[in-house]
Design a binder for these strands. Structure first.
Length: 365
DNA sequence: TTTCAGGCTTGAGCCACAGACAGGT
DNA sequence: ACACCTGTCTGTGGCTCAAGCCTGA
């Protein structure tokens, strides 16, 4: 859990230069003032508006200079440089110089807008995000034939492969031959709250995917790709690739509980912890070598659908077991043996539970 | 700039037991 | 074919602690 873990003092937004109370949201270039929404509306209510820009959404202390379309975030030069140099994927985010707040669209253009009713924007953002998640090296993509999909230009080419990988990981039990070598490195530091299952993850001030605006730490999952120039349909995955690119995929969305440390491929690793997937041992996962545009589109759609429906909450499969566990005596958190008296009380409790709540029948799935 | 210590965060593992499930009689 | 018995496996929550990360000196 991250409760209280955020150094709030260091992230205090700049206060309004006029009222000195509210957090500033815009920067007026004419005044060289940081203004809150109220003061901005008051000072710039006349038709002769000054040119204003949004305050950086990351540091909240400097005027925004760029708009990152992938993150839908307005960023100052410093934050933009920091964030988009963090990894190759972030570097591919499409950013444009930020435009002054227009007279009619200040509200509509407000940052932090992720309204579902704005389908066009949502789709665009979704495309960007999906691309960010799925894309691999665009240069390499261009070298692969059977590549007629216009989406390839923005790196969608291997979305299907990545998605396929996600599915493979989900299923966790299908491995092909070793012609394609797949390895992965993971780092894990933060953002996960307690999760006991692959889907049992909760977020705390984290931005899903590779949205990196305020990300201080990142779970990411790295793939390295090696392309066989002699057989362009074959892509192998490995760390020692002479021509390789990395792609970061948030493990929280992949649904994989990664190894806890960055692993060196050369280091032999023993059994992974229970509940994790050992991506390093055994036969490599075979990746599909080529897909039709329709296949790719279908996979991307499937990926998006999965992303929409994924659940981070812990799923209780057996309510009765939960009820028993909650009433069970513990010693330092561990279940302890019940005394006869406790067993009797529990028996009574169970009877009550059956009649009142309906527990006692464990549903089968 | 590098190193180190201390604090903080995260997640695996442990425990007992009810119920599911498979296989034998 | 059916009922019953037995053994094994699964899932449940709170706590501890090791490992890794972060921050400041």
């Amino acid at each position: 859990m991250l409760e209280g873990g955020e150094p709030a003092a260091t992230w205090a937004p700049r206060t309004c230069d006029t009222c000195r109370a509210a957090a500033s949201t815009v920067f007026c270039r004419a005044h060289s003032f940081f203004l809150c929404a109220a003061c901005d509306a008051r000072l710039h209510a006349s038709p002769s508006w000054h040119e204003r820009v949004w305050v950086c959404e990351a540091c909240e202390r400097a005027p925004a200079a760029f708009l990152c379309k992938a993150d839908a975030a307005s960023l100052c030069s410093s934050c933009d440089a920091d964030i988009h140099s963090a990894n190759p994927l972030a570097g591919r985010h499409h950013r444009v110089p930020i435009l002054p707040i227009s007279s009619s669209s200040s509200a509509a253009a407000a940052p932090h807008h992720h309204d579902d009713d704005d389908d066009a924007d949502a789709d665009a953002d979704d495309d960007d995000e999906t691309a960010s998640w799925l894309l691999l090296n665009p240069l390499k993509s261009a070298t692969v034939p059977n590549n007629n999909d216009s989406n390839n230009n923005n790196g969608f080419l291997y979305g299907g492969e990545v998605d396929e990988y996600l599915d493979l990981v989900d299923n966790c039990n299908s491995c092909g031959d070793n012609s394609n070598h797949f390895t992965a490195a993971t780092t894990t530091t933060d953002d996960y709250a307690q999760h006991q299952h692959f889907d049992g993850v909760s977020h705390h001030k984290s931005y899903a995917g590779d949205s990196v605006v305020p990300v201080q730490q990142h779970h990411h999952f790295q793939l390295s790709l090696e392309f066989d120039n002699n057989n362009n349909n074959k892509a192998s995955f490995g760390f020692n690739a002479s021509v390789s690119q990395s792609v970061s995929v948030s493990s929280m969305d992949v649904g994989v509980v990664p190894e806890s440390t960055m692993m060196d491929v050369s280091i032999g690793h023993s059994r992974p912890p229970k509940g994790t997937i050992d991506l390093f041992s055994g036969p490599s996962i075979q990746m599909p070598s080529h897909l039709t545009p329709m296949d790719r589109e279908a996979r991307v759609l499937r990926y998006r659908e999965k992303k929409k429906t994924r659940k981070f909450e812990k799923t209780i499969r057996y309510a009765s077991r939960k009820a028993y566990a909650e009433t069970r005596p513990r010693i330092k958190g561990r279940f302890a043996k019940r005394t006869d008296v406790e067993a009797e009380v529990d028996q009574m409790f169970s009877t009550t539970l059956i009649t009142e709540v309906g527990y006692g029948i464990v549903p089968s799935f």
